[in-house]
Design a protein around this nucleic acid. Structure first.
Lengths: 150, 150
DNA sequence: CAAAAAATCATCCTTTTGGGTGACGCCAAA
DNA sequence: TTTGGCGTCACCCAAAAGGATGATTTTTTG
């Protein structure tokens, strides 16, 4: 989106410059200001709509791509052990991550694993750090994309 | 949307009229044309973006589905529309859910969708309620299991 | 057009998460 | 036997998420 904004500004600048340049030739007609205004308005309206469309379309595209990477983890799952160890993820950490992916809260995981909630939190902190995630949902997304969990 | 287009045209007309009117007072400054152009451009750019966004808003989930069938190389995911509507999930809510599944925070979703964080939270609250989830991770798990999201 | 449905936003309050730090015991490998 | 990885736990703090309610605006629909 940043790119679009930049392009947009650039186009605006160019247009202005062009306008300034043409001013001394074409525009000798009376009442040209209104025509100008209308032209610019129409042009930028079009550009704006285009930009708006472009921005939302990109979002959709991203969604589609996310669908793409989320799907292959459907039936026959096999952990990418190589990547797991490359990231330094321990078995325990992967276990915790799976519980997170199953939608459990830290408290529930703690109860299920017979450890304290604090322990769960430290495990997950390390998982997040190793995966470069800030949130559990993000960690799950990343882990699934990399075939670390089902 | 009709209303938007009308409003848009009206604004344009008004602007032109205003411009025409002001022409004989304000515009004694040199190089004011560029300023004018810039102003109009900015104004209509904003309006255009807004309009574009507004227009695509409603049609979005349809577009997503079209993309889904148009890009078979990406994934074979198809939403269980029957279940989605059986649960009373609105397009917007599913959209939010997808963002959650992508690992975004409420704040990030809000920024991406151009709405307030509060709005995201209410949408998600309803999603959780309809899915019977207490947590976002759980909601994602349930939604994926029921083929509501990829 | 009027009613219903969806989307938007806010405020208050509680719970959950995440980050940072420090510590202790176990065990296997250097 | 010492070192380092792993698993365990605690405490504190800040941010994020969730629940409940109420209200307004847009959009859709009968």
């Amino acid at each position: 989106m940043r790119r679009h904004v930049l392009l947009y500004g650039l186009l605006g600048g160019l247009l202005i410059a062009a306008l300034r340049f043409i001013e001394y030739r074409w525009i000798v007609v009376e009442h040209s200001l209104e025509i100008y205004a209308a032209l610019i308005a129409a042009l930028f309206a079009g550009l704006g709509i285009w930009l708006g469309l472009r921005m939302t379309r990109r979002a959709e595209f991203v969604i589609v791509r996310e669908l793409g990477v989320a799907m292959p983890a459907a039936s026959d799952f096999e952990r990418d052990q190589a990547r797991a160890s490359a990231l330094g993820l321990t078995p325990r950490e992967l276990e915790m991550l799976e519980h997170v992916a199953a939608g459990l809260s830290n408290k529930e995981i703690a109860a299920r694993e017979f450890v304290s909630e604090n322990t769960v939190k430290t495990h997950l902190s390390r998982v997040f750090e190793k995966l470069g995630a800030q949130r559990r949902t993000q960690a799950v997304q990343i882990a699934k994309a990399q075939r670390l969990i089902a």
